[in-house]
Computed example of a mutant assay.
Amino acid sequence: MIVWLIGMSGAGKTAVGTRLYRQLKESRPETVYLDGDLLREVWGGDLGHDLAGREVNAGRISRLCAMLDRQGITVVAAVLSIFPEWQEWNRKTFSSYFEVFLDVPMDVLEQRDSKGLYRAARAGEVRDVVGVDIPFPRPAQPDLVLRGCGADGTPDVLAGRVLDEVLGK
């Protein structure tokens, strides 16, 4: 099973994903957690954040998840995920795919902006920022939509909601 958390920077993917991973690991010890930002580092930081680099990275993450899935490993993947074709590939390829969209309005993301990413993009200091100069296509068919950390609850509450849905599936 692959649980795929989608959302823009600051939506809470890492916060919800790490908590979900810990909760799932109790009943499924073979569970691993993959974070899109950390995987970029693992692969040596050889890709930029332009659309071409992002698409290569998306393919790498999806193929890694497919390999782990074939080995019976449960994966919680926290990924920005802006390519609908990879989301469709995931749904067709994985033995079980559960897509969660952390839907947080841009104004809230910009208020949070712990990395200073949106501020820097708005000031013209960085380019290729999703939500500013790269569009973020909303997932077409998520299995669960969460309104992100805040409106729907804390990261623990949101992770619990995902866990209930995943284990009920």
Rank of each mutant, 00 (worst) to 15 (best):
D164T: 15
P137D: 06
G131H: 08
V157Q: 13
W43E: 00
V32S: 00
K115T: 02
V56T: 07
Q111F: 04
L117Q: 06
G116A: 11
D143S: 03
D46Y: 09
A120D: 13
K13P: 01
S62D: 10
G48C: 04
K25F: 05
V100H: 09
L117R: 03
V76H: 07
L34V: 13
L146H: 03
V166Y: 13
G168R: 13
A66W: 15
K115Y: 13
P137T: 08
G148K: 08
G153Q: 02
P142V: 04
E85P: 00
P139K: 04
R119F: 06
F101C: 05
E165A: 15
M106G: 05
A121S: 07
Q111A: 13
V42H: 12
A15L: 10
Q87F: 03
D103Q: 15
V132F: 10
G7W: 01
D113R: 08
P105D: 13
E165V: 04
R122G: 11
A121T: 04
P29N: 08
D156S: 14
V104G: 10
G36F: 04
E30L: 06
R119K: 15
P139F: 05
S96K: 14
E26T: 06
L5G: 01
L51M: 11
Y118S: 02
K115C: 13
V129A: 15
E55H: 14
C149K: 08
R60V: 05
G10F: 00
E165Q: 14
L34I: 14
A11W: 01
P137G: 03
D37P: 07
K13M: 05
W89S: 10
W86L: 10
N90R: 13
Y97A: 07
W86M: 08
V157P: 03
R22T: 11
Y21L: 04
G116R: 02
I6S: 15
L24A: 06
S81H: 04
M106R: 11
L163Q: 09
I2C: 08
L68Y: 13
A77N: 04
L146C: 09
L158Q: 00
V166G: 03
D35W: 03
L68I: 11
H49K: 03
G59M: 11
Y97P: 01
L144S: 05
L47F: 12
V3R: 10
I134L: 14
W4Y: 07
R161E: 09
L20F: 15
F94P: 09
L102G: 07
L20W: 01
A78W: 06
R161K: 13
P84N: 02
E85Q: 13
L20V: 00
R19F: 13
P135Q: 12
D152Y: 10
R138S: 09
W4E: 03
D46F: 14
P142L: 05
R127D: 12
M67D: 13
L144R: 10
D143T: 01
G36V: 00
D50C: 03
R63W: 12
A52Y: 12
V79I: 15
W86H: 10
R22F: 00
D152V: 03
P137A: 04
R147I: 00
K13V: 00
L109G: 04
L5S: 02
